[in-house]
Amino acid sequence: MANIPAAQGKNTLKRRRIMSDLRYDLKHNKTLLLMVFPSILYLFVLSYLPMVGIYYAFTNYNYQGGLFGSPFVGLANFKFLFASGTAWKLTFNTVFYNLIFIFGGTALRIAIAIMLSEIIGNIFRKVTQTIIFLPHFVSMVLVGVFAYNLMNYETGLLNNIITSLGGERFDFYGTPWIWRLIIPAVEFWKSTGYGTIIYLAAILGISEEIYEAAIIDGVTFMQKIRYITLPSLKPTFTILLLMSLGGIIRGQFDLFYQLIGNNGLLFGTTDIIDTYVYRVLRVSPNIGMGSAVGLYQSVIGALMVLGSNYLIRKLEPENALF
């Protein structure tokens, strides 16, 4: 009981400090406040105000009723989503792909960064780096075009190769399971080159003296990689890993939508939360249900970021977000 007045006192003190700082800035830093004002206003209108729309998740929204005229249904939308299995399926797919992207992607990035830093020949290194970096720059629409050119049933290059080798045409766009392999492959294709840079920078940051001392001590090349390079990448690896784990419930809408589109045949293995919300908005409107999924994603997402930030703060305090 004795704590409560003290806590209240602390709160009022804190509030008083916020207000006095603000008064100070209004008096002495008017220009600075004005400079940051466009961003404040922008986020107020396009991020904070729409948070009111979280209420949609608890309604059976209809356009006549609008935000507050639609019938309130409590947790019915959530109950339906979980009872029908939709929420579990979406969560599974979203997390499944993100785990593959994170762990597979990281392994690839580190491996390629080490290879790039150790190969002999600057021109080869430059050219390779430039090429593997290229996919990052093109739009997902183009990625969809590429995928279609390679894999469509009648004219796709892969099917041409299969038939010219005497095989049967393979119906990629009608075979759900194969997309569990194709989607990660496309994601690795697009983002590995770019993701390699950060590890390359970390490798270049390792002191040359450590390597030289090791060579004098007679370590072999592979021992050098194993005992010097890899351990030096650990801080970078840990931070990036934790940060991406924070985003594990947020899917890459662009990637999935450009590859799968509205091909319902493949939804079982490819539908993620973000594509589902999009369809609920655009294809078969159900604002209440879509908002419910969105809210679920947002809450879990926030918890994941807070959790990962907590871990980062424990391990590498200077890299924590807040």
Binding site: S47, P50, G53, V277, I287, G290, G294, L295, S298, A302
Partner: peptide
Amino acid sequence: YFPSLFGGGLIPWYIM
């Protein structure tokens, strides 16, 4: 920073 952490999602934003 807060909106990157938590938000209403696509649908309320679209309606806005």
